[in-house]
């Protein structure tokens, strides 16, 4: 019972953390790694640092030209 509640709490916390990170344009790194390993096993996987920089450049880069925030 206690264990289950703790598990539940951890799950909620990780969701909140994920939400906070996605709010500033950084998706889940573990999901990215799992995706690369499952679908492109022979290709290199970015380290977390590379991944973070890539996401930062995408969010604020001019290439997309998109406005990712509102007034």
């Amino acid at each position: 019972m206690h264990e289950a509640a703790l598990h539940e709490f951890k799950a909620i916390f990780s969701r909140l953390k994920q939400t906070g990170r996605l709010m500033v344009g950084v998706p889940c790194y573990d999901t990215y790694v799992a995706h690369r390993l499952a679908n492109h096993p022979d290709e290199p996987v970015m380290t977390y640092e590379e991944f973070f920089r890539d996401r930062q450049d995408t969010r604020y880069g001019v290439k997309g030209g998109g406005m990712n925030r509102c007034c």
């Binding site: 969701r15 994920q18 939400t19 998706p27 990215y32 790694v33 799992a34 995706h35 995408t58």
Partner: peptide, 18 residues
């Protein structure tokens, strides 16, 4: 197009927050 970067299936509450 799932690529783990721009196109990522995301939990609906997480995406709601985003």
């Amino acid at each position: 197009y799932n690529d783990g970067l721009d196109y990522v299936p995301t939990n609906k509450y997480v995406l709601f927050g985003h």
